[in-house]
Simulated assay, not measured.
Amino acid sequence: MMIFVIAAMLGAVVRYLADYYLPHHGILIVNMIGSCIAGIAVSLALLLELNEVVMQAIIGGFAGSLTTFSTVAVQAAEQRLDKTASAAKIWVLHTGLSVVAGLTGACLTLLFLH
């Protein structure tokens, strides 16, 4: 349980720092990195039968708190109200690239370790 909390805290801090230092692209980057980490972890779990607690800490704790779609929703709404970007474009960009990052992480892990 404690490892999950520590991993979640670390993920949240990294997400905050990315959003602070990279205000226009930080959330997109952490969503992609978190999705890639989750993809890698799932593949490792399948291949190496890793401990369930460790997997929960990595996927649910760190990657789960690193990624954020609530911030994407706020960002999309703000940009739509400011007429600086399309909300649909933002959602497609974040969701699409996150799915691609997750699948890429999973496939590369399976490719290199299998």
Rank of each mutant, 00 (worst) to 15 (best):
V5K: 01
I6A: 04
A106R: 10
V72A: 11
T71V: 02
A63M: 01
T109I: 10
G105F: 04
G26W: 10
M2L: 15
L44D: 01
T95Y: 14
L111R: 15
V5T: 15
S65E: 10
L28T: 13
M55Y: 10
G64F: 00
L17K: 12
A38N: 02
I6T: 01
H94P: 05
Y20V: 11
I90W: 04
H24V: 13
L46W: 13
L47S: 15
G105A: 05
A7Y: 00
G64M: 01
V14T: 07
A45K: 11
S86H: 02
V74M: 07
G105H: 08
A87D: 03
V99Q: 10
V14N: 04
T84V: 06
I29L: 13
V30Q: 08
G26V: 07
C107I: 15
D82C: 07
I27E: 02
V42H: 13
T95W: 11
C36G: 15
W91A: 10
T104N: 07
G34R: 10
A88S: 11
L108S: 07
L50N: 00
T84W: 02
A8C: 05
F62P: 00
A106P: 15
L103W: 14
L103R: 06
A73M: 07
I59L: 02
H94W: 03
A57C: 04
V72Q: 11
I29Q: 12
I37S: 06
A101D: 06
D82W: 04
S35L: 04
V30A: 05
G34F: 08
P23M: 09
M9N: 12
L111Y: 15
M32S: 03
M9C: 14
E78G: 08
L93K: 12
L81T: 10
F62N: 00
V92R: 12
Y16S: 02
L113C: 11
H114N: 13
N31I: 00
V13I: 13
I58D: 00
G96M: 11
V99D: 08
I6E: 00
A41W: 04
L48M: 13
A88Y: 09
A87R: 11
Q56G: 12
D82Y: 09
L22S: 10
T95L: 14
K83A: 15
T67K: 03
E78Y: 12
L50C: 07
L22K: 11
V42G: 04
M55D: 01
G102Y: 11
A8T: 00
L22I: 08
F112A: 13
D19H: 09
G96Q: 07
T95S: 09
A76R: 07
V42C: 09
A63W: 03
L81D: 14
S65R: 01
K83F: 07
F62K: 05
G39A: 08
R15C: 02
I27Y: 10
M9Y: 12
C107L: 14
S43M: 15
M9G: 15
S43F: 09
L108N: 08
D82P: 03
Y16K: 06
Q79N: 12
L17N: 02
V42Q: 09
T104I: 10
I58G: 00
F112C: 06
M9P: 09
E78Q: 14
F112G: 02
A41S: 12
M1W: 07
A57W: 04
V5N: 05
V30P: 02
F4K: 05
A57D: 00
H114V: 06
V30W: 03
Q75M: 12
